[in-house]
Design a protein around this nucleic acid. Structure first.
Lengths: 245, 245
DNA sequence: AGTTTACCCTGAACACTGTTCAGTTCCCAA
DNA sequence: TTGGGAACTGAACAGTGTTCAGGGTAAACT
């Protein structure tokens, strides 16, 4: 409504505030602080009091801007989607586009400590996030998926995303703050655990010990993704019936 | 060990306890009580104090039998798998067997309120649960899946299970205790929400409004499952190349 | 100018949570 | 009868989310 960049005419009183005194609290600043606390303390110790302390403010001040801790978490969830890139659907490249989407999602979930635990039980159906869902659906539609498959494909993908990343960070959490060389030690220990099982009772687990906890989470992620993509592709009544026949 | 129904011979000291006094606390009884509380109060209100109250016992008594609330939750998780039926692998029927496994899992996750929230971040790698994992892997192995695919297939399936059921119960929770006719109202409201979106900006969402929140969660579940199964099947160098050709 | 209004924030409180620990109680064995 | 030892109690501690009556400041009005 007002045009903030216009110079103030001299007959109007100049704005009183010479020093900004206190930077006013905003939802954005609160979410920023919350992410700072999350990265430092982890999800379990992310409390309203910690966030308030981070801002140098009383706890109750937060409740002026945010109804709930639940709402704060929802705001943090929304932020995960800011700047998400979803290209315009290209029927010929739908697999690559979905792959990009998933990789981007995983990267974001890993970019803040325990971010996945916030994402976990949430569904991107708030007004701010619906455009993202719509774009994803558009990719599916362009690919030629049937309606019913489209309606479940998004769930399938996002549950895989959340679930996979959650498992990733759980393994990390179980070996907490072991410093830098933790991953190596960790993996050897877990591999050792599986490999040391009685092979007569657990032949498959023993045989897979090397892969199940493997250094290349990336590879396992891509493989799971590929399985989903192949499953989806099988529903496309393709004009290209040249399937290995 | 003892035979409780035999009369006590008079030369033996009759058991001192005329009144059974206290039934001793056991892990089993604690888990029972915890499930009672869970069903009545939901996951968020499942507290050690509530469990203790359910048993008519002081809170601290629980900690004699259980290290943690975390351990209690783990015990509850383990119980979900008791009586799980996993048949011996039958290469010709691996799809049906996996389907059964998933359906059974969903049924169990829905059989107690919020049970899925306990399952969520957990991985069935405790000693009691490894046999189940092994059996599932055996089915995959019999199907002829490559090693790497086997190693991710379990994750894929269980994250889909947890994720799908979680979404199911979240929708229910958002319309809390609305009595019996809630589902109908609920669905209409949600469908209305999606259907009322501006169709120019959300064409796909609007078009799918009827399916996305549909009465047949069962159907959507089966479809997602089928997508996974088809994806897995595509990795089988099948001796049966009679795919719809 | 002085007064009022409106807002943002403070401090304290409430009802919870998980967990610990010094004691009490009680049963079984010697 | 007399331990001994396990099982349980009651109280406490530190922390949680949330509310609410009150400050204190800055703008708005008379």
């Amino acid at each position: 409504m007002t045009q903030p960049d216009m110079p103030t005419p001299p007959w109007e009183r100049p704005p009183r505030r010479r020093t900004p005194a206190r930077v006013p609290l905003t939802r954005e600043r609160i979410v920023d602080a919350a992410y700072t606390v999350l990265d430092r303390e982890g999800y379990d110790r992310l409390s309203m009091r910690q966030v308030a302390a981070e801002l140098g403010v009383a706890v109750s001040a937060l409740y002026v801007h945010v109804r709930d801790k639940g709402e704060l978490l929802q705001l943090m969830y929304n932020r995960m989607f800011e700047g998400y890139e979803l290209p315009d659907p290209d029927p010929g490249r739908w697999r690559e586009q979905i792959r990009d989407f998933a990789r981007q999602g995983r990267r974001r979930l890993l970019s803040h400590r325990d971010a996945v635990k916030i994402s976990l039980g949430r569904v991107p159906f708030s007004p701010e996030l619906l455009p993202h869902v719509e774009k994803l659906l558009a990719v599916f539609a362009a690919a030629g998926l049937p309606r019913e498959v489209m309606a479940i494909a998004g769930d399938l993908l996002s549950t895989y995303l959340d679930g996979f990343v959650l498992e990733e960070v759980l393994w990390q959490d179980r070996y907490p703050e072991s410093g830098g060389k933790a991953p190596q030690e960790m993996r050897e220990e877990i591999q050792g655990y599986f490999a040391s099982l009685p092979p007569d009772r657990f032949p498959n687990l023993v045989a897979l010990a090397d892969i199940m906890v493997d250094e290349s989470n990336d590879y396992r992620f891509e493989l799971g993704l590929e399985i989903i993509l192949r499953g989806l592709a099988s529903y496309i009544a393709g004009p290209d019936p040249d399937e290995e026949s």
